[in-house]
């Protein structure tokens, strides 16, 4: 605080002079948004990774895809709806009742999700036939491919839309960057990889090695991406710098260091790197531990980013922020 620091008079409106964090999407009922977004990332990540294994490990692909689909259909969407003030009006957001998808990332998100769920359910039926049906013909395979591509595209869109929705907010400079959707996408895929290892452990298919090697790379990419994102934000504006400070050194620092860095990245990375050098797959217990850590990391990342979404103050003379 220096002499130029504007001081408020009415408690009521101090948040428009001082940079203050948004609360609608993280506090109270807003926690539902956070949870929905986490399930969105986990679900889409898992589904995307699952279809990647569709040919090589059809059984794991089926169960992984199904779990991902469930994450979206049973958790993400209902959580979002539960958050709405008037949930039963949700139909108003998609065509033909509204053209809002032309401009609104939120409306797009709902449309993407619904389409993904539609294609996804078809793809999962086909995948199920491949995985369990003894006599899957070439037709089924081809159809699976087509629906995999369709569902996959909308799955990616579902994964990135919330990043775009957040980066659309001009007054929250920490979010207002094109990097955000990709951070979310990459982190989601890494989460998916971790989860598919879990699925693999149950279905007994040998995909863990592949998954681990991709995870290693993704985790490093992810770490670099997050570092880039934070450095970028740090230099982008004073308010974004404040967000970074808050995340790294402020009230939510423990979420960042413990949840995102340690559990979300370092622990899984160490486990997979160690298994790389020892040329030995990590033990089941260790793997489960890594998967849990990774999932905690997914929850932490969304929490941290939502929590430090700080508004740029409204007054022109407070431009120092």
């Amino acid at each position: 605080m220096n002499a130029r620091t504007p001081r408020q008079w009415m408690v009521t409106h101090e948040w428009m002079i001082k940079p203050m964090a948004q609360v609608e999407w993280i506090e109270g009922k807003g926690l539902l948004v956070w949870l929905a977004e986490v399930f969105s990332a986990l679900g889409t990540g898992l589904y995307l990774v699952a279809i990647f294994f569709s040919q090589s490990h059809p059984l794991a692909a089926f169960w992984g895809g199904l779990l991902g689909w469930i994450g979206i259909a049973v958790f993400k969407l209902p959580l979002h709806l539960a958050y709405l003030g008037k949930p039963w009006r949700f139909w108003r957001s998609f065509p033909p009742f509204s053209n809002a998808w032309k401009t609104s990332w939120f409306a797009r998100g709902i449309v993407f999700t619904m389409i993904f769920l539609g294609f996804g359910v078809v793809q999962l039926v086909l995948q199920g036939i491949i995985a369990y049906g003894a006599t899957a013909g070439a037709g089924v395979d081809a159809a699976n491919w087509i629906f995999m591509i369709l569902a996959g595209v909308f799955c990616v869109l579902t994964a990135v839309y919330c990043g775009f929705a957040m980066s659309y907010c001009k007054s929250v400079p920490f979010w207002n960057t094109g990097l955000l959707p990709f951070v979310f996408l990459i982190m989601g895929v890494a989460d998916g990889l971790a989860l598919i290892m879990g699925v693999g452990m149950v279905t007994g298919q040998e995909l863990i090695g592949t998954a681990e090697s991709v995870t290693r790379i993704l985790l490093i990419v992810n770490a670099l991406l997050i570092i880039t994102y934070l450095i970028n934000a740090n230099y982008q504006s004073t308010t974004a710098e404040l967000s970074v400070k808050e995340l790294v050194r402020g009230h939510v620092a423990w979420v960042f260091w413990l949840g995102i860095v340690l559990l979300g990245i370092l622990v899984p990375l160490v486990i997979s790197v160690v298994s790389y050098f020892t040329e030995q797959e990590a033990s089941t217990g260790l793997l489960i531990f890594a998967i849990c850590c990774h999932t905690v990391g997914a929850f932490s990342l969304k929490y941290g980013v939502l929590k430090v979404g700080i508004y740029r103050p409204i007054l022109p003379k407070a431009h120092a922020y």
Binding site: M10, V11, T12, H13, M20, V23, G28, K29
Partner: peptide, 9 residues
């Protein structure tokens, strides 16, 4: 309570 405070959801 002030009608528009942040704490008050």
């Amino acid at each position: 309570v002030p009608p528009h405070s942040q704490e008050d959801m």
